[in-house]
Computed example of a mutant assay.
Amino acid sequence: MLALVAAILLMGLVMVASASVAMAERQTGEALYLFWRQLAYAGLGVTLATAVVALIPVRTVQLAGPSLLACGLLLLVLVLLPGVGHEVNGSVRWLPLVVFNLQVSEAAKLCVFIYLAGYLVRRHQALQTTAKGFLLPVGVLALTAALLLAEPDFGAAAVIIATGMTMLFLAGAPLGWLLACLTCGAGTAAALVVTSPYRWERLTAFLNPWADPFDSGFQLTQALIAVGRGGWFGVGLGNSVQKLFYLPEAHTDFLFSVLAEELGVAGVLAVLSLYGLLVWRIFRAGMASHAAGRRFGAYLCWGVGFWLGLQAFINMGVNLGLLPTKGLTLPLMSYGGSSLVMSLIALALVLRVDRERRLIAAATRRERAEEEAA
Rank of each mutant, 00 (worst) to 15 (best):
A3S: 12
A3C: 02
A3F: 07
A3L: 14
A3T: 11
A3D: 12
V5S: 06
V5R: 11
A6K: 09
A6D: 10
L9Y: 01
L9I: 07
L10R: 04
L10P: 05
L10Q: 04
M11S: 11
M11Q: 13
M11N: 13
M11L: 15
G12A: 01
L13G: 05
L13D: 06
L13W: 06
L13E: 14
V14I: 12
M15S: 09
V16D: 03
V16G: 01
V16H: 03
A19H: 01
A19I: 04
A19R: 03
A19K: 02
S20H: 03
V21P: 00
V21L: 09
V21D: 13
M23L: 13
E25Q: 15
E25T: 09
R26G: 08
R26Q: 14
Q27V: 15
Q27F: 08
G29V: 13
A31F: 07
A31W: 11
Y33M: 09
L34M: 14
W36V: 12
R37A: 04
R37C: 03
Q38C: 09
L39F: 15
L39I: 13
L39M: 15
L39C: 12
A40M: 08
A40W: 10
A40V: 11
A40S: 09
A40G: 07
Y41A: 09
Y41C: 00
Y41N: 06
Y41S: 07
A42Q: 03
L44D: 02
G45K: 04
G45H: 04
V46Y: 10
V46Q: 12
V46H: 11
V46N: 08
T47L: 15
L48M: 14
A49P: 00
A49M: 00
A49T: 02
T50K: 07
A51L: 15
V52I: 15
V53F: 09
A54E: 12
L55R: 14
L55A: 15
L55K: 11
I56L: 15
I56E: 08
P57A: 10
R59Q: 14
R59N: 10
V61G: 01
V61K: 00
V61F: 01
Q62D: 08
Q62V: 03
Q62I: 02
Q62P: 00
G65W: 08
G65S: 12
G65D: 05
G65L: 05
P66W: 07
P66S: 08
P66L: 10
S67Q: 10
S67I: 14
S67E: 04
L68V: 03
L69Q: 02
L69A: 03
L69S: 02
A70I: 07
C71I: 13
L74M: 12
L74I: 05
L74H: 00
L75V: 07
L75P: 00
L76W: 09
V77I: 15
V77D: 11
L78G: 01
V79C: 10
L80K: 04
L81E: 06
G83I: 08
G83S: 05
V84P: 04
G85V: 12
G85H: 12
E87C: 01
V88N: 06
V88M: 09
V88T: 11
V88K: 11
N89I: 06
G90Q: 07
S91H: 05
S91C: 01
V92G: 00
V92F: 00
